[in-house]
Design a protein around this nucleic acid. Structure first.
Lengths: 336, 336
DNA sequence: ACAAAAATGATGTACGACAATCATTTTATG
DNA sequence: CATAAAATGATTGTCGTACATCATTTTTGT
């Protein structure tokens, strides 16, 4: 009972091998009734294309470009590391990953990177939500390029799919833990966003605020401030607020363990501290009790999933439902 | 700059194609210096075997057997569902998954299933930790079978690798959340295990107890009781304890949403409730506020990883470090 | 009914590794 | 040095699909 091949399909459908091939790779020029015959035979025999043989025969290799922000620290760095890891893993499978780094928030550079893709088969891009970038992505898509948005979505760009966490949900989750960890019914909560212009951050802020309002109305959310991913600035912001009075909690919707710890260590009552992205510094801070909870979006999973979806797109396969949704990992002291 | 093939390696190493093949598939009968020449050439050219071509040429398909407990509810069921999903996904890649179900806790049946594997290339087994089973696994390994333990380990069996969560860590995590959610410093905590004879459950119990003792010493852990995965029994246990006085928290180290909810709904003060495995019932219980936290070990990831490792084993590839470690997902009301 | 267009069949090559055979050369052994 | 043993080379067919070409048949439009 061997696996059926296209030969078997052709015989069973009573058409030639060439016709089966035309149907399978929809090259067109096949009568409707022949298509039906072939499809019936495929269903009847349970034929599935042998991917190994197909890949070999195509001979071609696929090149996917990852456009990621530069910066040798934190989340972007670990994303890049994961891309490099996948790169070696995929060498045996005819997939080449190219990594292009651009300065963060530099719209012109991001557009340039998108414009210079060359003959790539697809691109995964972590970009800021600027209209120039959305336009460039839309242009690429029109030209037949497959585009995956990574970490932060570009909803109006017509990208094929978004791979990343549900940021509103992340913010809501942070708020729930904040409310429960604080315990006492009253207190001031400080929310520091990376930049409110970035969609992912603003979504987190909105989610956090909504849950705090609905479920923990006695906690006072202070006006949201922005750190711009600057550790010193973050530290200053927190210190400044601590000087006004005790804080029940601090939620940093971006990376920024270091600055937070600096500001918090000499508070007489340490606020409940929740941050994003599990860096090594985060790990030890959790263990030592300087941090209470870390939401981590699992860069490895994001890269793997992005590549997987790009390959699905290249093969004109239907994308699985909820394809790009990345579940956030939650870390506390006992499970780092 | 095409990818190098064995032809290129042979030329570069100044040996014949046949010799390269002998080295690559270590068939033996090659002089040491030739091996070195070939290995040098491989390193020099950066040759990596084309998996597609190799798979096609070998022509052989791999058959892996999953031995899982029966029962049409809860965790085992979703594990089985994931196996079926993978089965269809892998049809195109020359991998066949066979699913064998055995009554839970039935040692004889599990041994029989292990003994009846036939010509399988590997097996993933979720088994109870009985010495007969460990012996049978050891015997299989001696006979050259690849064995992955799933969800619960069989440490003395010599299995190739364990795929599943760190259960002690899960218990510790549960305790941390319990302590923080309870908030008040005093209170009684009930721990219901599925069965203390099962290693995964007893590890969770130990982890939970340790963290409660060390970090939340004012919470009183009642004597551990066992539910044997029986919803009615669980409900009775909890009700009985509630009759003695209010409970600050209940941790069910097994599945068992339903029984817990039944017992808890009419308590005047609802205890903090933490359970395992995100079933649909769990989902809605979380949303409605009947449950506070769910630890989920992500059956999909477990199945995918088990298959991946079995394939690595078949291909004599080195297993990646921390290969079998599955991170537990943590769900609360706002992120289900 | 006839030409033009569309559909189909027949056939061959390529992809890269695997696997097996047989011939030949090199090395080890007494 | 002769001979056996070990190592190597040369060659060929195979896996299942993709893709291209050319001949032939069927359908369509007028």
């Amino acid at each position: 009972m061997d696996k059926p091949t296209i030969q078997d399909v052709a015989r069973s459908a009573q058409v030639s091998l060439a016709t089966v091939d035309r149907v399978l790779n929809n090259r067109g020029g096949v009568a409707a009734k022949s298509v039906l015959k072939v499809e019936a035979a495929i269903a009847r025999l349970g034929y599935v294309r042998d991917e190994a043989a197909a890949a070999l025969s195509r001979g071609r290799s696929y090149r996917y470009v990852f456009i990621l922000p530069s910066g040798d620290t934190g989340f972007a760095a670990s994303l890049r590391r994961e891309v490099l890891k996948e790169q070696t893993r995929l060498a045996a499978e005819r997939v080449v990953l190219d990594l292009v780094t651009v300065p963060p928030f530099d719209v012109a550079a991001q557009v340039a990177a998108l414009a210079g893709l060359g003959d790539a088969d697809g691109v995964a891009v972590m970009a800021t939500e600027a209209s120039e970038i959305q336009d460039e992505v839309a242009r690429l898509r029109d030209a037949g390029m497959h585009v995956v948005t990574l970490v932060a979505d570009l909803p109006r760009s017509g990208r094929d799919v978004y791979v990343g966490p549900d940021n509103a949900r992340a913010g809501r989750t942070a708020a729930e833990f904040m409310g429960r960890f604080v315990g006492r019914s009253h207190g001031r909560i400080l929310l520091v966003a990376g930049s409110l212009a970035a969609r992912d951050h603003s979504e987190r802020v909105m989610g956090f605020r909504a849950v705090l309002r609905d479920r923990f109305p006695d906690l006072t959310l202070l006006p949201v401030v922005e750190s711009f991913d600057d550790s010193a600035r973050l530290s200053a912001l927190v210190s400044h607020e601590l000087a006004q009075g005790p804080l029940a909690g601090v939620y940093v919707s971006a990376a920024g363990t270091r600055g937070l710890i600096d500001a918090v260590t000499d508070a007489e009552v340490r606020p409940i501290s929740i941050v994003h992205e599990l860096t090594p510094a985060c790990r030890s801070a959790l263990r030592m009790g300087y941090l209470d909870l870390v939401l981590d979006q699992n860069p490895a999973a994001e890269v793997v999933q992005a590549v997987r979806l790009l390959r699905d797109l290249s093969a004109r396969r239907a994308l699985p439902p909820e394809a790009g949704d990345i579940t956030m990992n939650i870390f506390v002291r006992e499970n780092v």
